[in-house]
Design a protein around this nucleic acid. Sequence first.
RNA 1: GCGGGUGUGGCGGAAUGGUAGACGCUGCAGACUUAAAAUCUGUUGUCCGUAUGGACGUGCCGGUUCAAGUCCGGCCACCCGCACCA
Length: 880
Amino acid sequence: QSEQKWRTKWDEAKSFATTQDSTREKYYVLEMFPYPSGRIHVGHVRNYTLGDVVARYKTAKGFNVIHPMGWDAFGLPAENAAIENNRHPAEWTHENIDAMRAQLKTMGLSIDWSREFATCDPDYYRHEQAMFLDFLERGIAYRKESVVNWDPVDNTVLANEQVVDGKGWRTGAPVERRTLNQWFLRITDYAEELLTEVKKLDKWPEKVRIMQENWIGKSQGLQFKWTICHPEHSEGSLNGGIDSSASPQNDILGEIEVFTTRPDTLFGASFVALAPDHPLSKELAGNKEGFEAFLKECQSTGTSEEAIAQADKLGFDTGYTATHPLLGREVPIYIANFILMDYGTGAIFGVPAHDQRDFDFATKYNLPILPVISSCHPEHSEGSQAGDRDSSASPQNDILSEAYLGDGHLMNSQWLDGLTIEEAKAEVIKRCEANNTGKGVTQFRLRDWGVSRQRYWGCPIPIIYCDDCGVVPVPKDQLPVELPKDISFDKPGNPLAHHPTWKNCACPKCGKDATRETDTFDTFFESSWYQFRYCDPRNESLPVAKDKAAYWMPKNGGVDQYIGGVEHAVLHLLYARFFTKAMRDCGYVDCSEPFTGLFTQGMVTHESYQDENGKWLFPSEVIKEGDTAKHAETGAPVKIRGIIKMSKSKKNVIDPQDIIDTYGADAARLFILSDSPPERDLEWSEAGIEGAWRFINKLYRVIIEVKDALPTDKPENFTEEEQKLRAIAHGAIDGVANDIEKFQLNKAVARIRELSNAITGFKGNASWAQREAIEILIRLINPMTPHLAEELWAELGHTEMLTATPWPVADESLLKTDTIQIGVQVNGKVRATITLAADASKDTAEQEALKAQGVIRALEGLQVRKVIVVPGKIVNVVAG
RNA sequence: GCGGGUGUGGCGGAAUGGUAGACGCUGCAGACUUAAAAUCUGUUGUCCGUAUGGACGUGCCGGUUCAAGUCCGGCCACCCGCACCA
């Protein structure tokens, strides 16, 4: 319709261009910027509509709002497109950006487009190269060996996403693990700060704070040493080879450093286990029969924690034993596939009775299960407790079916018996520290951030390797290290490494021939600091000028409202928090926390389908028949994979452009805000968009019809009908505002519809009160359907656009009510409703309640025992 | 496997421990129309009853409370994340 007209007017008036203005309070609204996949999807529409409502609302509330947009432009899909369609990633990406920008613009978002940038632009990534060099200098960046998924056929590194059921997605070859030298950022140095600060982010959803806390995973524990021994009685011929290798006189072969968060269960230890890639593993089992095969099996599991945790428990008996540091008992040393080298010391002692993984392992390898925690106190009679925990209450008699993880007191543990778990932990740590076998330590689950990627379409890591000088940073005046434009994807593997000349350069130190780092940064690198770049997007010498950062992202507050999908609850948000602190420590900014307020929207989900070969199908390719489905063309059976997150790779993405084209941006926006609460998942369906469209048309029609008849002068007195309408309208002002502040936009829409119903249902002559209500409605709906609101506002004779019009102010005197209706319950069941004066006393309420017909009927044959009156809420008559 | 979340009519959902189902979608009935669409009016949790009315009802089992969708304990189902998808 006429939506384009208003977008042009906003552009001409530069309505959304923001400038620094120290006289006004700033408000920074940011939605997670999109990856330019080609077309916007419903998730984008939801995300940017939410942000736009906030931005327009806060503008009306008088804030100096910054609401920018850009492109998270590096990433794997561009390379996949390059391989599949023989397109250059840059070309593909820029075309996508152009297409998506045009699409976003049709949504009528209040975005300051003058701040737009793409992260693949050298003017953007030169700054992160410079920051990386600073990180290197400060010791935040370092290099170490790390494991990757390796496709042995393509000779290429695979992303976890490219590993399907343990096989390479293109070759189908079983994936192996490879070790590469890679760059890391010391996020673990910030673990403590990241943890304490996240607890203070009170404008973040609690669930995200909890997820981050758990991810950082601070735990107190004991790190202590077990001595490695020969088994006293070498069992049969199994381990025949051992004796020859070490001196037969001395049983002590070394020590294993073990970390545990459960030192209290020390007496329940029945084995020690090492990570497969633990240095001692090779030493103890290196020449054993079957070890190679075992290692190979371990390496066939993917590198993701999920894959490792869900793999069947596998162990390899080294034939050695470890001596219990406090008990002198010997337990076997295993190498186990579920031990992670990255956590703790890469070695554990297993307590099968009180850890489920250890339990599964012990059951499989026939190791003893020794319960040391009893769920009942030792002073009480044992075994008397009934219920499903009795197996652990009297553990000696029963065979445990699972590990006992609950609370309780120590038993079977000599000098720990009777202590609580916490007391026992402290006691064990004390003893170990006293006899110098161990110490209490703090461990974090958080691992350092590996930022190296063996890919072309990312920011080059500004490092040069020289045979003589070693690792040499690229001098800052030589930045940016730009990606070569001519690139070939003919060979699998890292295209940059295959480029004939790009990596050749002179060593900045000695001038000799040297080689560039061909790895590029993880794309989370770009998205970790873009919130700063919007504040000063054209600055050539710095990521962001200090004064601009100080205004928009000051010390005590960053982005006021950040909005994006829950799927980013941990990784992106944690990396961005870390990066901000690292930037602060390098002197770029004063800000410590990038996102003061966070809202995580739910995912947009849709039905998804896979054919028998596991290939994803578009919903349009599928015909549903009750609970089964078949391919529309071939008729082959299709697997219904349920309602899952829309994702391009799963082909269940819906194109919202059709909806915008058919119904207009306002209808699309209103629809997406209407029903589902924003934090909840939204299952896509066509139904409902019509409703939004009808509502918009009706509103327009009704207002255009009456507008000329509405008086412009406020009368002295109002009729009862008019006062009723005014009360609803004024009540909606703060109601909608509160809903928006609390992101309950579905309720805000419902409230607006109630007001609309009151206006269209108004019985009486055209009056000023109607005009008042209509104008309030228009101003309240403006953040949601801005084109409609501007149009109607102009139709009502206003010359100033709504983008420059403040939020209305409610007349408090209209919000009071004289009478209220409350329910009366008899024994908790509602039997009547009574009408009372708003300030009625408890006694009055009780008397009125007992007079109500429904109450009298319900009390027949009963005696009133008690009457509970909750003023303004309810009366409950307790009778029996 | 571990961490986090969600579960309320035919559907999306609303409800500071206090009248469950606001607001909307769908359906049904009616008005207007030659007809259809659009629009307007009414109605729409289930069951019993002609009706006044009553019983049941917020994933399941149990508990606390005068009162539980809401709080507590135990389950079930589904969804998200798990460090190289973004």
